[in-house]
Design a protein around this nucleic acid. Structure first.
Lengths: 220, 220, 220, 220
DNA sequence: GATGAATGAGTGTTCATTCAT
DNA sequence: AATGAATGAACACTCATTCAT
């Protein structure tokens, strides 16, 4: 990508005589950090949080071990950066959908996202499992989640006032349920991907929407 | 290897009543294994899967390092045993509730279980996060989960035929939703325990049941 | 030494195919720990505290890195063990000399010790320099030093009552001075060993003793 | 390398009054080096030699990492510069006291110095501990120390000729003893600062002087 | 049947040093 | 003149695993 970096992983001689490629290179800090971040996501997705060593991330990105610790103060900082990154993307998605206030459209868009960036789920899930043992990190996730639920709630509320969402359950509780359902799917997806192929997810989505919709005139 | 090793968790009598053998009171192989298992659960709950070293398990149980590797072929075997153990408990719970076919009762019973054995959730969640990278282990979880969903489906079906569960969504889809919701809760519980205190869980439960119930005569 | 250990450092093939010499060996814990301790002393003497890595200690002892961390909880514990070991030796020396209450004899004996076990000084000095940044370790040294000074004081006191030590300076102050002088020598010895060859040390010693002796009948 | 590098500490004007050069105010090479030197002293005092990384020095001085390696060829060069700096100060002190030839005054002055610049001792001690493993560095220390002892000897000699210093021990041996005592104090000061509070040091000093003084008319 | 000494690969992290800019 | 990105070796430490006893 960066020509100044001339594909460091491709060199096959292995040993790279000590004084290779030192000194100040061109690259732009942000861009390189992004490369590392992407590598981290890929590694976490493949190996899980526990298996995601800095060495593996470095290798994946074509950098040296030292480079990773240069760009991130420590592993935790890297993980946090990954989380923020992922949440930012998700937040943008949600925010974009907010104006339409069309729940189904939002959910479908989100579905599309999970399909194209399927690593995201895997990573988010790993991060969640890890959060329990890093209170500082847990805190970040909590706040982000709370934000998402709030957006969700406001969408559901406007849906209720338009008669498209059932009114017998408060919007915040519905938001919780929808949030839990999608978390539940996220949890099972890595385990049984075949149960979450597009068609089936569409069916699940329809069922979920039916559950939060008002009954038709003569319901069953 | 050791034939005594095969299917250690399947035996249902639990107690291993020493089989009246005279002389040396025998190694209580299963009993000791159970102690180790309990220790493993405690450690995983506290430290997460990644942090659960065999050393820590041994220490927690008051055993030697060697003992753990003696009773379990390797770490993976120990983890698998823990999972089987947990699922067995959960299975028993579900099976017990099956006869009543009263969904709410079942959910509440399950709720009670999660409250008394709160390690279970924590551990299950950690195990799930780990499963992705151990196909053999993933397989076990898949089968167990499939079994649970099946039981759930059959309960929901009988609920539908009795008019207590909405009929506009197939029972298996409802089972999936309920399963996903509870997984979602399990996922969030370690992160935000304060959002899952008894009263609030009751509210969430009620809402969930409302969502899968048929509408009253004149619904909204 | 231990035949069960068949001189591990001697093997020249370097690689030692992975599964070599595992399992429970014969050795006696204390003895092996002593070997490691000796190795640690040698390494610290040669490379200083900072340069004394666990790897180097292991190599020096003909053990693996893991073995060192098996015998000592961590580096600090190893250092502490080294210090205790050295101080114990020194204490025994001092205690032995206490009965004669002959200061000169004691100092000469101690001189002999420093000559045969010249690493001891080097190491003690390194340890002292390190102590400043490890309060727990500093504490140990303090207590040991206090003990030594006390023994010294009691020897000087009995010397005073026998008229062999000057009485115009309190024994505890003299003990401090003697202690400081020997520390000063210890400090300089590594830097200028040629200034501390036997003959010269004898001269220094004589001068020191003259300084703490009562003046002859007609002093200068 | 840089000719500006040679003898950076010897210049006595201190201020480098910019030598009236017009235009770009010039790098103030020496001034910046002095800042770095001061930072290095502070860091070594706080963290010890081993803990004094170039990064920490840079940070302490508010400079970049590169700046340190720009001003000093390498770490060893920095350490050497620190030592030279410290010894220069000490030398000036001793030289100043030489004319009075009053030993007690000198020692008290020196005491004052150690009190105001207490980092000096800490650093000198750390440097001494390190010297053993850097022969080139050790050489510098040796020469400096030899110089100090010489000055000391000459002071003691003049003291002897004036009858203020005992004559039964050669001046050079007394110089060695005094030097060793002060080194011994320096060694213990970091470990037990409470034993070296002003009053006690005064007492120690008095005792030391008594030890090298001639006996009064009717001694004990 | 059980132990625990020993291994060696792997971890996160720190560091002096290099050098293109 | 000065910077700071990047390196790679080294560090202390942890771990699952092996196996002689």
């Amino acid at each position: 990508m960066q020509d100044a970096h001339s594909e460091p992983t491709r060199d096959t001689n292995g040993k790279t005589k000590s004084t290779a490629r030192r000194g100040r290179p061109v690259g732009d800090h942000k861009a390189k950090q992004a490369v590392l971040l992407k590598a981290a996501i890929a590694v976490i997705a493949k190996e899980g949080y526990a298996g995601a060593s800095l060495r593996k991330v470095a290798k994946q990105a074509g950098y040296t071990t030292g480079a990773v610790t240069y760009y991130f103060a420590n592993k935790e900082a890297m993980i946090t950066a990954v989380a923020e990154n992922l949440f930012d993307e998700f937040h943008a998605l949600l925010e974009a959908g907010r104006e339409h206030a069309d729940l189904k459209a939002i959910l479908e868009q989100w579905l599309e996202w999970t399909r194209t960036e399927d690593d995201a789920w895997l990573v988010l899930f790993q991060l969640l499992a890890h959060a329990r043992h890093e209170p500082a990190f847990a805190n970040i996730l909590q706040q982000r989640y709370a934000g998402f639920r709030q957006i969700f709630t406001s969408i559901l509320e406007s849906g209720q006032s338009q008669g498209r969402i059932r009114r017998d359950i408060p919007a915040d509780l519905l938001a919780d349920q929808i949030s839990a359902i999608s978390d539940g799917w996220m949890m099972m997806f890595p385990l049984e991907p075949e149960r979450f192929e597009p068609h089936r997810v569409q069916t699940l989505l329809d069922a979920a929407i039916t559950m939060i919709s008002p009954y038709p005139a003569s319901g069953d």
